[in-house]
């Protein structure tokens, strides 16, 4: 085994190194999950209660203003909940990943392993919460007699992959930026709120009819991701052209974020 240390030139993620250190990634995730559930009083129940409460509000809201999903026959409750679950994963993961470097500064200054593990493990912790909260979804679906098609087996992983790329792209970008400019974190809640309204969380994408606006709308990858998720659950129609735009933007955001993170990675230990 030979380690050569030289002034860093830019390089994309070192996949071999990531694989060799995979135990660390596991333990980082494991530690944060443990701590999270040890410290919160409500623990698991909060993760389940929170999306239910929001859904309840939107159901009331839809009744009040006679909000409709168009020609879809999917009950609004379960429709909106699917969006909120995915949305929750997105928003909590963005906040956690963006904070992951600053909050682990004490480790970064003392121990070396691939720094990308911090945002990745933050994503995994949020994913764990998502899986827990998804448990409520299954009985609800059988209550409304909605059975997903067989395609979930490959569509779910695809949905997760696209979402993970989007989160890691945005999250690692902000994680690195946050080290240099501490005021960045104040812009995040705004950004997340913005995404809530420009993504089809509590409404259906077919509300938008203008063609050019529709394309722009899908430039937000979350639109395509949520639609794909719902397509596999409720067999709602899929707008393929839009999905393609979402996927392309997901990939662009992922690479941009990772590139910036890698560029900043070398000086993280010196400035955190």
């Amino acid at each position: 085994m030979e380690i050569i240390i030289k002034p860093k030139k830019f390089a994309f993620l070192n996949l071999k190194e990531i694989y060799e250190h995979r135990d660390i990634l596991f333990f980082l995730t494991w530690k944060d999950i443990k701590i999270k559930y040890k410290q919160t009083l409500l623990g698991f129940s909060w993760i389940i209660l929170q999306p239910l409460l929001i859904t309840f509000v939107f159901v009331l809201f839809s009744k009040a203003i006679n909000f409709s999903l168009g020609d879809s026959k999917v009950p609004y409750t379960i429709y909106v909940l699917s969006g909120i679950l995915l949305w929750n994963l997105f928003s909590s993961a963005i906040i956690q990943t963006s904070n992951s470097i600053v909050s682990n500064a004490h480790i970064i200054k003392k121990i070396y392993f691939p720094r990308i593990f911090f945002p990745i493990s933050a994503l995994f912790v949020s994913t764990f919460d998502f899986l827990i909260s998804f448990i409520i979804y299954i009985p609800l679906m059988s209550y409304y007699k909605i059975y997903p098609s067989f395609s979930v087996i490959y569509i779910f992983p695809l949905v997760y992959l696209l979402l993970a790329m989007l989160i890691l792209g945005i999250g690692s970008f902000f994680a690195a930026l946050n080290v240099k400019y501490r005021d960045v974190k104040y812009t995040l809640p705004f950004l997340i709120q913005l995404f809530f309204f420009i993504s089809p969380v509590f409404y259906a994408h077919n509300l938008i009819e203008l063609n050019w606006l529709k394309n722009l709308y899908y430039a937000n990858p979350l639109t395509g991701i949520i639609e794909l998720f719902r397509h596999s659950l409720f067999n709602t129609p899929l707008y393929f052209h839009g999905l393609k735009i979402s996927i392309i933007f997901s990939i662009i955001i992922f690479f941009t974020g990772i590139f910036y993170f890698r560029k900043m990675e070398n000086i993280l230990a010196d400035i955190t």
Binding site: M1, I3, I4, P7, I107, K109
Partner: peptide, 24 residues
């Protein structure tokens, strides 16, 4: 933990570094 700005170092073996007791 931090890269050099010039020169090089070669370590021929597994390295364990302990800059602090009980990190993390």
């Amino acid at each position: 933990i931090t890269p050099p700005t010039e020169g090089s170092a070669i370590l021929r073996g597994k390295v364990a570094s302990l800059l602090e007791v009980g990190t993390g």
